[in-house]
Design a binder for these strands. Structure first.
Lengths: 114, 114
DNA sequence: TGCATATATCGTATTTATACGATATAGTAG
DNA sequence: CTACTATATCGTATAAATACGATATATGCA
């Protein structure tokens, strides 16, 4: 019997999300939220860490980041999650973080469209 | 005799600027600075305003932005300028703002490279 | 059940951002 | 030179971000 593999990092994305306008007041607000979430070196580092690997990362993140306390890293993860750039799922005793491809793609589209 | 036309918005850019690394600690810091500068709706709006037109804008900017006071808009302009995303030159009694193409391009490259 | 581990949340101190009115500065026109 | 205009800077009030230690929560394992 094959194990059930749940690839939550790469589920299909809704087209409607991608096809929203890339300018106008709402797009400005959206881009501001996304870039504000990115506007800290530790969060850039986290995002790259997750983007580089194809898989999610369960734990390890705190160890990889500068000299920040665990609670601080957790706070940064929350900011990225609320911005829709990453997502986290509880996976046993750890939490498994990975990129939210829609959010990252949306960011890239909006920035490219400036 | 022809007039001297000084197109300060489109001067040639140094290649060395563009060819810096797109990841690593320095790039993280650089991208964080750029995105932090973008992380406000009014600043996005300003940047788009300048990017849309090929020319610089002398004055007018305050009128175009939401309902923010002149001093507040000036402050936002300063943030964008310090981030290297726009530049301003005194042009008579007004100040002529325009996109800093290198900075914007660098931002796009760094975001695309995440 | 109770302990150990991983992560989140809370409380809090400090710093930084945002916004405004008031004022300074600098160029233009008269 | 004076008045006018456009923009920047200052002072300041308020809000938000950052960081930490302490603590809560939830899961897996003995």
């Amino acid at each position: 019997m094959k194990p059930i593999i749940k690839d939550t990092c790469h589920e299909p994305d809704s087209a409607s999300f991608d096809l929203r306008p890339v300018e106008g007041k709402e797009a400005d607000q959206e881009l501001a939220s996304l870039t504000k979430a990115l506007g800290h070196p530790a969060r850039i580092q986290i995002l790259r860490l997750l983007a580089r690997r194809q898989s999610c990362i369960c734990g390890e993140i705190v160890d990889e980041i500068d000299g920040l306390a665990q609670s601080t890293v957790s706070q940064h993860l929350k900011v990225l999650k609320e911005a829709g750039l990453i997502k986290g799922e509880i996976e046993g005793t750890a939490v498994c973080y990975c990129i939210e491809p829609r959010g990252l793609r949306r960011l890239k589209v909006l920035v490219a469209g400036i």
